[in-house]
Nucleic acid binder design. Structure first.
Lengths: 366, 366
DNA sequence: GTGAAAGCGCTAACAA
DNA sequence: TTGTTAGCGCTTTCAC
């Protein structure tokens, strides 16, 4: 046996891991007393506590977490789930890194576990991304990503009373505990800005079409048009995914009609090259014969040099604030739900160089 | 209630989550039959199975994971732990991303959970990074990072029989299930290369001094010296951390003695700027009055332009192979332990530009 | 093909 | 301050 290594058989030579009863037997006390020591409860004399603590350390005892959560729900493990398939809504490296850095800071450094439910979707497209909560695997969770139009899970989570926070919300369920940005307002700002510049036919490259954040984009766009007394035209809205080809085609189709003089790129892809490609195919020149408003998730950052304005949606920043509040809720320092909804900001001029398209995280290797 | 939402009270109007007994009562069968259906065991008629499956779906039943793992150990959750404090051994973004991409590919996509024990060290410097295993929180684990000289946990994990893999190994416990590279050989190669170029006094900037991978560096260095019949000189070895100041000082001290004509940068920091700074302070010019061999974790990459050779230690590549094997062990498709030890490669010429110093992952925000 | 009973390790409630 | 009892939800064993 290696130096310093401890290896003590359970009393009676039983195999397997030590239990409170084993510790109790060795210490000559009852299991409940051991339990009190493990859980730092009062009602144990200092001498007994010290003795039991020593035995626990010597034999390397750890309480069985399965048995433990049968009596009380887990408060030392937070879940992180994806509410959308990563191939459909690719998380950028930057976003994931920021989320992890925060989880490390808030939960990890305290000794809490973080449990990832990385992708229930590949097995079952209608997977319940909260399954870890129902299984009592964790006692609270972060729902990372937009919520699908047909989403049922989030309301069930909400009703369950578990601490949770979603990085998105439901258009028809404003109670959702969330940390997100106001996409409706973003679309409204973008549209109004272009209307004020005299545009009448404004195309909307609409990201997240299958999700509530996509719906919000439509609503904001319609609201600005209605205020200006302009009849909306469905053909001016093109739902797009994050794929280059989709964005190229979307821009191409929208700008092919020369009566359309402006475009809002709310795709969320920050993919300047594809927007340019689409415009070129339509025979248009952004900044010259058409105005483009580009959406970005980075403050004061140019994602399309020719854009007449950039709208910043501070999603990461909202998430960071939300996580802190969730931690407090999770640890019993406050109640839920949480409502962090950051407003977007429209920049007409930005001095930064054009930042590159973000790299998807779950794609690092292939 | 929202459209399509299911919310059915348990029989008897009891509060809380549904159990196998509730399902059984509704279905008019016994709990065991429900259990058989949930676990896809035989011994249930098709009709009964279909009926129970339907009820399970309708009420959104999920088995209680705590109760479940009291009868059998968890095989749907893999742990990821850090064996060293991240401030002491900073993981680069690249490494962490690669690890996560692999976990996503191998475990996440199958529907397994990945449970992170991010940092038990801040609370307790002697923390047992395998606590999640002892608590039966997960049924196997990845030990990410080097193993400390005084490490006790890894042998206990090994003896426990749980599937595991460490991204490092113990110099005196070769049975360790690991995916790593041969640091001893890396140091040997580096030293021999410099000896063959005629150097007699070779400094070793030794990374990971408190860890086994640091010991391996010493051993390889000594082996090459012994082969060449050169008496080792302890003052030529400088253990360094990842901090710039430490590396600057280390290089400075080593090169201040002009009799020392060569240096092996096995710090692992890939920090060219600090090496240069240290040399400058010692009044030396790498590539002119001294030879430097630089260690890197990226294939065919220059991490110090003036280096006379680069030694590539394919740690990421080893990890990727190891994870696949661990997954098979975890899922019962093979037995452990795993031994993936990649050899280092010495490059005398590399045509790449100098790559920048890697950015630490757990430092993204601050 | 199906069910009854026991027990996994822990802790809340109650008793001493 | 400490101990006893019961029971959490599940699965295993054994019986029907």
């Amino acid at each position: 046996m290696r130096k310093g290594e401890v290896q003590i058989r359970r009393p009676g030579g039983k195999p397997g891991a030590w239990t409170v009863h084993d510790i109790a037997q060795v210490a000559g006390v009852s299991a409940k007393t051991v339990s009190r020591v493990v859980n730092k409860q009062s009602g144990v004399s200092e001498a007994t506590r010290a003795r039991i603590t020593q035995i626990i350390e010597d034999v390397g005892y750890h309480p069985h977490m399965g048995a433990r959560i049968m009596r009380s729900s887990p408060r030392d493990c937070i879940g992180l789930t994806l509410s959308a398939p990563p191939n459909e809504v690719p998380f950028s490296q930057q976003v994931i890194q920021r989320i992890f850095a925060e989880l490390y800071r808030i939960f990890g450094a305290k000794g809490d576990y973080v449990c990832l439910d990385l992708n229930p979707f590949r097995r079952n497209p209608n997977a319940d991304y909260a399954r870890g909560l129902w299984e009592q695997r964790y006692g609270g969770c972060i729902v990372s990503g937009p919520l699908a139009i047909e989403d049922q899970s989030i309301v069930r989570i909400h009703r369950s009373g578990h601490p949770y926070i979603a990085l998105g919300r439901l258009t028809d369920f404003p109670e959702t505990s969330c940390a997100t940005v106001d996409f409706e307002e973003g679309a409204y700002l973008s549209t109004r800005f272009l209307l004020e510049r005299g545009h009448k036919r404004i195309g909307l490259l609409q990201g997240f079409g299958r999700y509530h954040s996509g719906l919000e984009r439509r609503h904001g766009y319609f609201r600005a048009l209605a205020e200006a007394g302009i009849e909306p035209d469905e053909s001016l809205i093109r739902p797009v995914t994050f794929g280059s080809r989709d964005i190229i085609t979307g821009v191409h189709r929208l700008l092919a009609d020369h009566a359309t003089t402006a475009l809002i790129d709310s795709s969320g892809a920050e993919d300047a090259a594809s927007v340019r490609d689409g415009a070129r195919r339509a025979g248009r020149v952004p900044g010259q014969d058409c105005d483009i408003v580009a959406w970005t998730y980075t403050d004061n950052a140019t994602v399309l040099s020719e854009a007449c304005a950039h709208v910043w949606l501070p999603l990461d920043e909202a998430a960071v604030e939300g996580f802190d509040l969730l931690a407090d809720w999770f640890h019993g320092l406050r109640d839920g739900p949480i409502h962090v909804v950051y407003p977007p900001t429209l920049y007409e001029t930005i001095r930064s160089d054009e930042i590159p398209k973000p790299r998807p995280f779950f794609d690092v290797l292939r």
